[in-house]
Write a protein that binds this DNA or RNA. Structure first.
Lengths: 210, 210, 210, 210
DNA sequence: CATGAATGAGAGTTCATTCAT
DNA sequence: AATGAATGAACTCTCATTCAT
């Protein structure tokens, strides 16, 4: 009996995992149910059995992804030591997570460029949670007189957007570097350098009174 | 000179224009040839007559968009006054252009999150041109001792990515603001405030020696 | 054993059967997937489900046809009594089979006049098998001193080509006879007369030393 | 003025010539108006201007082909010397003509395997003329007591069908010979050997009383 | 006579989804 | 819970044909 239950869970997990990769690689429309099923080694009808329809599966994938990243951040951040330490933790954790799970950036960017067309309600909740974390840090820093002239939404996109773009364009930048050596596309930068650079620059930016 | 019933240039332009809007709104896969043709008031076969296939039309749209933005920038920028003035012009022109033509941001972000899956060769050329403009400004600033510790690719995405994300998420942010007043999503910020804010912050960031 | 609503083998067979008739009647290009599906009372997508694409279905049809005729001949021929008896059996069996399944002649002639454009590899194998049967008979006859001056390929086409042409042109010849009584188009000849005539004449031809 | 007229004629001839080759190579349905126009270096609309529609062009091509072959035969045959000489001339002229204009065999075989679906009325007339020539020779031979037990339609297909099949399958037989040396596909036979062989064998066949 | 622009009616193929087992 | 069979609605693309110039 326990076997049965665990199999069902295992199947569901396998589906989410493979769907995530494929949605990230090819986008929502270009990913077919057949493809996902085949990648899982599961019958196609199972996708619909467990997730009702393609949109439902996609929603499940996105919740999974966003919840995971949120949890990663609140776990890794030794919250509340200092706003600056928190900011550093936020940036580095987010960057490291995206680098390890590169489909995440792709999924998030795509969703943002759709204005959340595929999953309005749910997207809001999960993305807001993420934005909420940074907002809180910034507000606290402002309260302590460390940060000035804060526009949290813009800062959020500066951090998160930049990281996501650098992650998704990695192969593209590598290819560009091979074609033309003149342009510096940061094609060999590793994620720790990148996140450290971003942190340093954003910190400066927030600390200035202007 | 007389208004013609059969004007190839006009038809081609109509197609590009409508395709651009639809590709931006719905993405490549979710946009159908029927839809585009109907929006143009043109027979579907014309799309293929002029652009060979859907991918060809998409490529034409993207070249058009990226070339237009490039030209806008090099026209509006009174080039070479000073790196700081150039930076300001770059940011503000780019932001204003995207705000006036909101499909642009959507198209660019989507393409970047695909790593240029739809148009490898061409994308490179056009995006590189844009990146090249900023690169040049940054390099000059560094040479003049105004900017320090420059990583151009990261700076580029910080500017361009942030603007694009703010443009595409505008409706989403508006909706979020209606639902919940607690969070500040910059939903009423207008584009000039935004681009000025970004310019100010980026300038600071570049001028610091760290 | 119970009659099933969903019987893959039955469906596949239905598709082959109807496709065979339609390809024979109208040729490859002029036969549409819609038409075939409708004739089968099956959804069009099933054709692609089972046979991948139109060419695949056509190939399946041809293999089916050629294998069937080959089997018919090796079954009906009491092989190896004497080359002459074998020749008679070959001619009469082939003729009777084509007469009973008139699409066969049409398919074969069409394919030959295309030089096997639609299915290079497969066509070779199956047609060669048929030609091999006659070749063997002729060679044996020659060895036994019964036949002389044999050019097997030419003899093969004389037999098989003539039969096929008489079968496919049957309606045409009937119509011609109605229009004009002067010309004798053998419009009332039945297949047994025809095959007997061919056998008699070919036998003479082979037995002469010239 | 004469120039104009001659140009029109030249254009029409160019169209017929190229259409003939393409119809022969690819069949009626698989040949497109675009293709023909491009091959001629003529605007597509011209095809319809001169020949009303595709079927009309095809009909024109076929009449051209069949009339040409008919004329060739009645020209080359020193008619009425003796039925045997006439037969020889008929076979050899037909074979040589098809060998020089290989599209002819393809077109004729295809048309016959359709039972003249594309051009009922016209096909009859032209094919009948050809068949009429042979019929007359056979009848005369019978009257003179040279030939016996004649079934003209069958003899006709034995001659014409065999020649056509050998011509159209030439590339196929060559390829088969390369793959497998065991089978003798007459792949190196030249047309004069073939037509002489056919003539010899048919002559024997007709002279026997059986 | 000649052209390029335009069209409508399909054709083949794909795919999310459902049904029967 | 799981599968393969089946479907209907779309989608991209093609092509004979016509129109305006």
């Amino acid at each position: 009996m326990a076997k049965q239950t665990r199999d069902a869970e295992a199947t569901k997990a396998k589906i989410i995992q493979n769907a995530m990769l494929l949605f990230a690689k090819n986008g929502y429309d270009a990913t077919t149910a057949d493809e996902i099923a085949q990648a899982c080694g599961v019958n196609k009808a199972m996708l619909f059995y467990y997730y009702k329809n393609k949109a439902g599966l996609y929603a499940a994938v996105m919740t999974h992804v966003l919840d995971a990243i949120h949890e990663e951040i609140i776990t890794k951040d030794k919250c509340c030591v200092s706003p600056i330490a928190d900011l550093e933790a936020f940036i580095k954790t987010y960057a490291a997570y995206c680098d390890n799970n590169p489909y995440v950036s792709s999924l998030i960017l795509r969703e943002l460029s759709d204005s959340g067309a595929h999953l309005p309600e749910m997207m809001f909740a999960s993305l807001r949670k993420l934005f909420g974390l940074l907002s809180e840090i910034l507000r606290e820093g402002e309260k302590q007189g460390l940060f000035h002239n804060i526009e949290p939404m813009i800062i959020h996109f500066m951090i998160v957007g930049t990281i996501n773009l650098l992650v998704t364009t990695k192969p593209m930048r590598k290819k560009a570097a091979e074609l033309e050596t003149e342009l510096n596309t940061c094609s060999d930068c590793d994620i720790d350098e990148i996140s450290h650079y971003i942190f340093t620059k954003v910190k400066l930016m927030l600390e200035m009174k202007q």
